[in-house]
Design a binder for these strands. Structure first.
Lengths: 346, 346
DNA sequence: TTGTAGGCGTTATCAC
DNA sequence: GTGATAACGCCTACAA
């Protein structure tokens, strides 16, 4: 009934524990030679008993856990699963497991999550900067973990100035492009659905948005900036609010595709056609973006690749702690699809 | 630099290792009395060193890992993330962690994944029956794990006959309702997008589909059944295939909402209006279903609740292995929205 | 070619 | 009130 251990295998095979260890770990043809006969006997015993090594014990002994943690801000947003998918793929390929934590956009959880990961002695941690930044608490713990030698990689939407390896997709540049594009389509009133606002998101998107407006000689109007939460419903309500304005925007930038889905719905509910009456742009290029009706114009980034790159960086750092600071740029790209068009003449 | 252990804390506080253990585990007011003075000194040392207990060691000692595994069939389908969300919520509330594995619809991975979970000595496992069933290999391992005393809970779309606790949402009944609904709308040619076909899905959806047709005196036509893979693109292609038929269906049932998103797009690309020209029904009621244009009619199940119930069952079984077989029914529900309507007169 | 012994960090048991 | 000691399962020098 109880799980078999090395001892059980050894007993059955009539050898010592160490021999079992050698065979199981395949050191056969290396430094420690084991007779083929013994090897077979051990293997057979393993099979018969269904012996599986205990990762806890191995890890306690070896010092590493072959596990990397990934903290995502919101499990409900498809965008983050794509990161998770990339992380999991690359981790698996390197013999690592991924331990996924959803911070649920709730800074209160942050400490609990870090503690959990800390207890489990993960070998490295990948996290999304934008949301961790929100919490001073989280930042503090992160610093401690880092000081203690835990390899860290941040996935960021902008350049960062503190000492962490990171994979960046510069949304600042992308947002400039978005603004230029909308302005070239003659849009004068451009709304911003600014979900889950953080200081950092501001740098990436709010600022370039404002700067783009000003550079074109247009005013920055607070009523065109709708702050909201992370759910589709939030995006829906935010869009409704914007579109019901006496002098409504002819274009809306949504901070992510999920909110844009809500916005699309809102437009339709008000009898507005996208893109004839309203242009809409999202960010992330989640898988379904190009199947929506209309297909969504969006700022695309290869999220799976970002996840994979993050793991690569992390493993690099783990193998060589003295590496110079790593950074890699996975530039996002404006994908023009059907949800944007020339400004209507109102 | 190295992680502090109990020994370090003990040294700093000037007490023995055991005392540290007592204090940290809060046994203070229980069986083992510790002077308040000592307690404070220990706590302070813990804080100063940033000591965090090592879960591996604890687990090795105590025999359990406070971790439950969850195997989902496809990380790309939002539906499964909702289950994961429920599992994670309930697990967290009970002091457990969730270890998520994505089987990537690939039976080859199954064995590897089970081995991984086995090595990690999870305390219990929740899995989705429909996809595990595909692989004989997987089924065998599952049986072994179960025999060995690993508590198991299956999340299933139908009643199951073997000895496992399970949470069921009976899609068989729901599908009957779907058929009745479509027939009442006068649809005579009803297509089925039958993604990721497994024998079990067949029972839930293919059979009632066929039976519904026959009961209404309609033929079961193979050309109306499009088998396909799990991605949106697959759904798109499958729908295209169906809709290009000389005698195209006026209604399509899609095995899940994700595929339905593809189908919606396909209809639009062929210039067909949903629901005027084509009725479309999905399954799962993923979050965005009610924001799509048109809002998607679907078979809804409370996935988060299913996840939570599964954890409750699992914990119940863990606390009391001799419990009689548990089963709970979370019945799905047909939600009529905008993607369905009366059959067009072709 | 195989066996022995020590230790990874924790906790339960039993003395002091 | 507090401190040794053994044990959880594994790996790896080192010895035989």
């Amino acid at each position: 009934m109880k799980r078999p251990t090395q001892v059980d295998v050894a007993r059955l095979a009539g050898v010592s524990r160490a021999t079992v260890s050698y065979v199981v770990n395949g050191l056969t043809d290396g430094r420690v030679p084991i007779s083929e006969d013994t090897r077979q006997r051990v293997l057979q015993a393993v099979d018969q008993l269904g012996y599986v090594p205990d990762a806890r014990a191995q890890s306690l002994r070896s010092g590493d856990t072959k596990t990397i943690g990934l903290i995502i801000p919101d499990i409900r947003n498809p965008h983050f699963w794509e990161h998770a998918e990339g992380v999991e793929q690359e981790a698996r390929a390197s013999g690592y497991h991924m331990l996924l934590s959803d911070i649920a956009l709730n800074s209160e959880y942050a400490e609990e999550i870090f503690k959990g990961l800390s207890r489990r002695r993960i070998d490295g941690l990948i996290f999304m900067g934008s949301f961790i930044d929100q919490s001073e608490e989280a930042k503090k713990i992160l610093t401690i973990l880092s000081k203690r030698g835990l390899p860290l990689v941040e996935i960021s939407d902008h350049n960062i100035d503190y000492e962490v390896d990171f994979v960046m997709s510069d949304y600042r540049e992308a947002t400039k492009e978005v603004m230029a594009y909308l302005l070239s389509l003659q849009h004068q009133r451009i709304g911003l659905i600014y979900g889950v606002a953080t200081p950092v998101l501001a740098e990436d998107r709010l600022q370039p948005y404002q700067e783009g407006l000003l550079a074109a000689g247009l005013p920055v109007e607070q009523e065109l900036i709708a702050r909201c939460g992370p759910t589709i419903e939030d995006g829906y309500q935010a869009a409704l609010q914007l579109l019901k304005l006496p002098n409504r925007p002819t274009a809306i930038i949504s901070i992510n595709d999920l909110l844009a889905i809500g916005a699309l719905r809102a437009a339709r509910d008000l009898g507005l056609d996208v893109p004839t009456d309203l242009s809409l742009i999202g960010y992330d290029d989640i898988q379904m973006a190009k199947y929506l009706v209309p297909r969504l114009t969006t700022v695309s980034k290869d999220s799976i690749r970002v996840g994979r790159e993050a793991v690569k960086q992390l493993l690099g750092r783990m193998n060589n702690p003295d590496l110079p600071r790593q950074k890699i740029n996975v530039p996002p790209q404006l994908i023009k699809r059907e949800s944007t068009g020339p400004a209507p003449t109102l």
